[in-house]
């Protein structure tokens, strides 16, 4: 495939990625979707989840927090609040966060404001662990 996608991933604190890739799979709010070169212009929000991209036959995974994706002229711009590559994840910390979130969820009522926050934290921790698992 001659055509490639330019993948740009930035967070408020730094630029995470700027690569030429063949394929991107991202966790959209309405479901996971794949992007190939020549995609029509698209603007969508992302869920907490796992974003992966294929570069020369190898797949890389990134754990992303809330954000959005814009596709235009074969450039994929991913703007997320946090993004961690598989090898950057602190597995120990993620496990602890998972434990904490689970504990908190047991005690909280489901209409509590805190419930949603902890639920998101739980999801983040789970994704982190999942992504870290793939990296090794």
């Amino acid at each position: 495939m001659a055509e490639k996608l330019q993948l740009e991933m930035v967070t408020p604190y730094r630029k995470v990625l700027s690569e030429q890739v063949d394929e991107v799979t991202a966790p959209g709010t309405v479901g996971e979707f794949g992007l190939l070169p020549g995609h029509t212009p698209l603007l969508t929000t992302l869920n907490i989840g796992e974003l992966s991209y294929v570069q020369d036959g190898t797949i890389s995974h990134v754990a992303v927090n809330w954000g959005y994706v814009e596709v235009e002229n074969n450039t994929v711009t991913v703007l997320v609040e946090t993004a961690e590559l598989a090898d950057q994840i602190d597995l120990e910390r993620a496990r602890k966060a998972l434990g904490r979130a689970e504990e908190a969820l047991k005690t909280l009522d489901s209409d509590d404001k805190q419930f949603k926050i902890m639920e998101a934290a739980l999801q983040r921790a789970m994704i982190r662990i999942q992504v870290a698992g793939r990296g090794h």
Binding site: T29, L43, T44, T45
Partner: peptide
């Protein structure tokens, strides 16, 4: 300008989330 942009889940939802973000940034 590209006329036909796809919004997911919907234009309103995307704008709802994006615009406050813009102010924050």
């Amino acid at each position: 300008l590209v006329a036909d942009y796809i919004y997911e889940p919907s234009q309103g939802d995307v704008l709802d989330q994006l615009l406050p973000k813009y102010v924050e940034v």
